[in-house]
């Protein structure tokens, strides 16, 4: 035990890295599964980044809808990103994190639109903000747009 003491910091680091990697991987897989499932479920709501719907002649009821999510990195991703930033190039660990979060925010927005009986969302805007604060690595992803419910 005594001989391990000088390496205590290294051991803590390794444990955190391992926990981050395993927990992060499991959570990511589960999240992607749930995203794919809900994307099928909400297929009926079409999302446009166009300002106006393709069929303008029809009367619609318009409401603003939002979807947002705050995601944090895991320890492994943070360390990996630190390494990437030395050599440059594509930071894959963050790419998947942001992809997942953005799709989640769109799904939440679609969910809000569906509850209002809308068939489409137009003029969708995205916003990504780093959550301010003491070393907490987290970003908020916001998606918002105008949900249109066709009036019969």
């Amino acid at each position: 035990m005594q001989s391990l003491l000088p390496f205590a910091e290294l051991i803590v680091f390794a444990v955190l890295l391992l926990v981050g990697y395993v927990a992060g991987r499991i959570a990511e897989k589960a999240h992607y599964r749930s995203i794919r499932k809900r994307e099928k479920l909400f297929e009926r709501v079409t999302v446009f980044s166009n300002r106006f719907p393709p069929t303008v002649s029809q009367p619609f009821q318009a409401t603003l809808v939002c979807g947002s999510v705050v995601v944090s990195q895991d320890y492994f991703k943070a360390v990996a990103a630190g390494l990437y930033s030395i050599f440059g190039g594509r930071v894959r660990s963050y790419e998947s994190l942001l992809d997942r979060a953005r799709r989640e925010s769109v799904l939440r927005m679609k969910h809000a639109a569906m509850r209002k009986g809308a068939s489409m969302i137009v003029n969708v805007k995205f916003q990504t903000v780093q959550v301010p604060g003491s070393g907490v690595g987290a970003v908020e992803l916001l998606a918002y747009g105008t949900a249109l419910r066709p009036l019969a």
Partner: peptide, 10 residues
């Protein structure tokens, strides 16, 4: 931040 995921509180 160790395990990652959504920060529901935020």
């Amino acid at each position: 931040n160790i395990v990652g995921g959504e920060l529901t509180g935020y």
